[in-house]
Design a protein around this nucleic acid. Structure first.
Ligand code: MN
Ligand code: MN
Ligand code: ZN
Ligand code: ZN
Lengths: 172, 172
DNA sequence: CCATTGACTGCAAATCGTTTGCATGAAGCA
DNA sequence: TGCTTCATGCAAACGATTTGCAGTCAATGG
């Protein structure tokens, strides 16, 4: 019914954990157990995760939820993770792997919450146009796509968007 | 320091209030005082407003905050208002004036929160491309631009994005 | 115009994601 | 090893949004 699930995608050349923690030291941030656990976990995932998901995925006692929130702020500020917003009220975070991956978008299934990574940003040109047209500087953009994935189309789901709770993907 | 402010923009041919309420009746929704007050207010604004802003703008006692939230859900479901998300934790709503206005985007000043309406959606093509590439159906997108408006550039603000609170525009 | 009735409202309490105060704990360094 | 400072855990605080409930009122039919 679901696809092979949000596979952990171990099949990629991930930056060694040591390299990640060293980036903390370089900015004189302490390499603590919670931070290592978080980075180790994010390293295994290629899709944005909510703090709740991250917390649940970590071994019990690895990291307090409050510490997790604080850590994500830190990592975001250091540019090591990127924050995404799918409009369901919970922030999602993804490890930044290489400059190219820093800015990108997603295609989210409103039915099963499956996420497709959209690595190319074709909005860069639009951004420049919009900025110039109104005299704005340092313009950025947030862009996410939502739709029904092939699997959920089959299942014959209708999913009246207006009726679903405003928060959280339906999960069918 | 600020521009003429979020002017009420009375200078547009707005749909008569009666036409709006009649749309409620057509779908057998009751025309109540709170709903009329909300519609009358939204009719005066062309930019997305948070429920807090709407509630503050209404005469005291016109509409309870809980009723306001419920009303926005109703109106959104009826397609009379559109919900926008600027990533500051509070939903914003705008009256839908004509089909053409239903889907559009914004350019938001991260400094003074000034909003520029971007009526053209140049992302429609991208959307189709993304949908086709991954077999998704009924694909939609959310897109907002953020930057520093001309006024705030002058003021010599730096605004280290990483340091600002995650929520709410700084307001300088 | 009045009675009827279910939809709608105000108020308060509950949720949810996120933030913060505070005392304790432990990285990094001499 | 001891010190200083930053980080953590826990619990309470927060802001946005939702919900339960009892009273109210818009719409309808007589
Ligand atoms: Mn991604
Ligand atoms: Mn708008
Ligand atoms: Zn982009
Ligand atoms: Zn668009």
């Amino acid at each position: 019914m679901k696809k092979p699930a949000q596979s952990h995608d171990h099949d990629h050349a991930a930056e060694p954990l040591a390299d990640l923690t060293s980036r903390l030291r370089q900015k004189s941030q302490r390499v603590t157990a919670p931070r290592q656990a978080i980075l180790a976990l994010l390293r295994e995932h290629r899709h944005p995760m909510t703090n709740k998901e991250i917390h649940a995925a970590l071994a019990k006692g690895d990291c307090d939820l409050a510490t997790l929130y604080r850590s994500m702020h830190l990592l975001e500020g250091m540019g090591m993770v990127k924050r995404f917003d799918f409009g369901d009220g919970a922030a999602r975070f993804e490890l930044v792997t290489g400059d190219a991956h820093a800015h990108h978008h997603h295609l989210v299934c409103t039915c099963c919450a499956d996420i497709v990574e959209i690595d190319d940003c074709f909005a860069a040109e639009l951004e420049a146009r919009v900025a110039a047209a109104h005299g704005f500087k340092t313009v950025t953009h947030k862009l996410e796509f939502f739709g029904v994935c092939p699997d959920c189309q089959q299942a014959g789901h209708s999913h009246d968007k207006a009726k679903r709770s405003r928060r959280k993907p339906c999960g069918c």
